[in-house]
Amino acid sequence: MSSVRSIVLCLVLSMPAALPAEAQETCGNGSVTPTHRIGAPIPLPAATIRPVVTLIPLQADAPTLMVVLEGVVLPARAGAAARAIQTGVLAGLRDTPATFVASDEAPDRHGRRRGTVQFEGGDGLGERLLHAGAGLADVSFAPCADRFLAAEAQARAEKRGVWRQSRIWTDLNAAATGLPDFVLGRGKVASVGRSGRTTYINFGDNFRTDATVRLREALTSSLVAAGRPPESLSGRMIEVRGWARWRDGLDLELDTPAALRLWDEATDKGTD
């Protein structure tokens, strides 16, 4: 596992030794007793999506669930091939016994629940999708971030699914298009500045058009404590991920160390 983590987290930052009990339960660590079986795959739109899966109850008097999976995102720019992979994984798991672990008490306006889907062996549907290269890990879902990044790292190392193509990347040194969206960006840092409690990582000299990554104060403090102050990123190639919007160029706010790594220290640079 340590070798996988070295691929994923090239910024050496201290992570909690253990997740809180509630977070462990949300991620579904350990074996579970199945309550449902996975239904037929749902047609995927061309837009950026979180996987949605139908869970058929094992007991006749229980309701069918529509679940939006936490921690996995498939960007629109990944293309039709990546959607076919995701559909294939879900089709292959049809009728597999599983359990839904909720991350939110209330359904959304479409009646869907959010959470993870766990199997008897202790792994989950999110991990299997990421391992197949059928999506990107969304580390803003903290309970499963470590596990999901480890599954993604294996797909990256073996160039499975989305990792076979270069279009999964957003070039942070080029003009942004298609925002807002979930992006996996990489680029060379032009400068680093600070205003109030926010640290700005800039990818060009024109702050009205060039990409900017903003760090929350807690993340800046974590970097400093780990001996990697944000100022040390100037001139370096970095990789970031998260939901970006358009505000005088690409604008992305990070709040977790797992969302940022040094690209020029990475061992999986060969994605085409």
Rank of each mutant, 00 (worst) to 15 (best):
V8P: 01
L9Y: 10
L9Q: 09
L11C: 12
S14K: 14
P20H: 11
E22N: 08
T33V: 13
P34L: 11
T35F: 06
I38P: 04
I42E: 15
I42K: 03
I42D: 10
A46V: 09
A47K: 07
A47R: 10
I49S: 01
P51E: 14
L55D: 09
D61T: 10
T64H: 03
E70Y: 02
V72W: 05
A76W: 04
A78C: 12
A80R: 01
A81S: 13
Q86R: 07
Q86V: 12
V89H: 05
A91P: 00
T96V: 10
A98D: 08
T99G: 05
S103G: 05
S103I: 11
S103Y: 07
A106N: 12
P107Y: 09
D108H: 00
R113C: 14
V117P: 04
E120H: 03
E120V: 10
D123N: 04
L129V: 09
A132K: 01
G135L: 07
L136H: 00
L136K: 03
V139L: 02
V139R: 01
P143S: 15
A145Y: 02
A150H: 04
A150E: 15
E152A: 03
E158G: 06
R160P: 03
G161K: 02
V162R: 02
W163A: 05
R164H: 07
R167F: 11
W169V: 08
T170A: 12
D171G: 04
D171N: 12
L172A: 07
L172W: 02
N173P: 01
N173K: 07
N173F: 11
A175K: 02
P180H: 07
F182Y: 15
G187H: 05
G187K: 05
R197G: 15
T199P: 00
T199S: 08
T199F: 06
N202R: 12
F203P: 03
N206K: 10
F207G: 02
R208S: 15
R208E: 13
T209K: 06
A211K: 04
R214C: 13
R216H: 13
A226Y: 05
G227A: 12
P230Y: 09
P230Q: 08
E231D: 14
M237A: 13
I238P: 00
E239Q: 11
E239V: 11
G242A: 09
D248T: 04
G249N: 06
L250R: 01
L250I: 09
D251K: 03
L254T: 04
R261H: 12
L262D: 10
D264P: 02
D264A: 06
E265N: 10
E265R: 02
A266K: 05
G270D: 14
D272C: 08
